[in-house]
Design a protein around this nucleic acid. Structure first.
Lengths: 229, 229
DNA sequence: ATTACTACTAAACGAGTAC
DNA sequence: TGTACTCGTTTAGTAGTAA
């Protein structure tokens, strides 16, 4: 995690880069940098010393200013910042969405569907895990969570195809990869013709979530829905 | 100029954006933001208040956290940061390069060449100004300036074609748009078969630079070479 | 011209706590 | 649970100045 200390340095580094020290050497006096930074000459001088110390820049002091070049570590920092921003600006959807719901006991139908081989095979192929034969049911309570869940419907999802056997038709199931309680990877599943309403989440995972997270009816659980790349 | 104060806010804004408040509403508690920021809950709270005050975010406080959405002003800030970085990361050459040289009196040949109609027409077309019939000669002194000028040769330039008349051949001239003394736009010209060496710059501009900048031999002049888009 | 030290001032931070 | 206030502490910033 980038801490507060590093922010100022990253800012200074960016300004230095804009002054031409990115991938080449630039002559930058502390006075000039100070002006660009909106700070004093002394502060600019300190920044350069600190940046040199952290290894983000290489510096040669001459009688008429500093020759500065951003070092590979500094370039890496700027690229990290850039790629973080790029993901944000160019992604159609936010990188993840958090929902919170209350555990409740459903009708046990989930287990029935998940156990169907045709579905199960696809879960293994497309989600990468063999689901525990049961779903964790979560009831969304706040308007915020319900609104967010509704927005989720428009997101790209892993689609598990439906099928029919001798008895009936099984519909398409949309799956959204999730992190449950910041620990376990699973999926939010959403059958197009669900018996539940939009305020209910059904979660599957490779393990029994109730046991692994020691959950009982009424407990609150946070799930982080990961959007697809 | 983004000042130091704004910089912290910009980082907080970036973190908030990464938490999902970019182009949608996210539920972010001050505690959670504090963790991502590497700061205390109190500081995170203050940041949110300040960001709301500057109009970068919209905030609704609920009993279980804040609902936060980055406002158009905040989005604009992030986009500005992104485009600055994008220019840096994706440009083959730095946006500008500064050189410093000492004024000296040349042989007056510059005037002779510039006045040639074939060249002059092209200057007007390609550089957008009718050059004063004379060049300002600058002698580079430091190794840094000479090295930089050498690197410049590899940069894309405006090319002014050569020609021949009844008497002789006039060669190709490469022009680099420059700002002279932070005031006047002109061009650094570089004839492929120059009589001068790499430590000499010849500058043209729409006006007589010696007069406009009150320059005399021995004065130091800074020129900023602008790279082409 | 520069850089950068020391001594001081200003501001950001966070612990405690009210709500 | 949450947010956000006060206030003492810590940290960043600047002026003056030496080299």
């Amino acid at each position: 995690m980038t801490d507060a200390q590093e922010w100022r340095h990253l800012f200074a580094l960016l300004k230095i880069a804009e002054m031409g020290a990115y991938k080449r050497t630039a002559k930058i006096s502390t006075e000039y940098l100070a002006e660009k930074l909106g700070a004093s000459q002394q502060t600019a001088s300190r920044y350069l010393i600190e940046l040199e110390h952290t290894g983000w820049i290489k510096r040669t002091i001459t009688h008429e200013g500093c020759l500065i070049k951003i070092d590979s570590a500094g370039i890496a920092e700027l690229q990290k910042l850039y790629s973080n921003l790029k993901i944000l600006m160019e992604a159609a959807y936010p990188p993840s969405v958090t929902l919170e719901g209350t555990v409740f006991t459903g009708l046990g139908e989930g287990a029935y569907y998940i156990a169907k081989d045709h579905y199960r095979k696809q879960f293994m192929e497309k989600l990468g895990f063999d689901p525990y034969p049961g779903t964790l049911n979560l009831k969304l309570t706040s308007d915020y969570d319900i609104k967010t869940r509704t927005e989720l419907e428009a997101y790209p999802a892993v689609e598990v195809e439906g099928f029919r056997n001798e008895d009936r038709t099984f519909g398409l199931v949309k799956c959204y990869p999730v992190m449950i309680g910041n620990k376990i990877r699973g999926a939010l599943i959403s059958a197009l013709r669900s018996h539940y309403d939009v305020s209910v989440l059904e979660i599957i995972a490779p393990v029994c979530l109730r046991k692994h997270l020691s959950l009982k009816d009424g407990n609150k659980v946070k799930i982080e829905v990961l959007t697809l790349p």
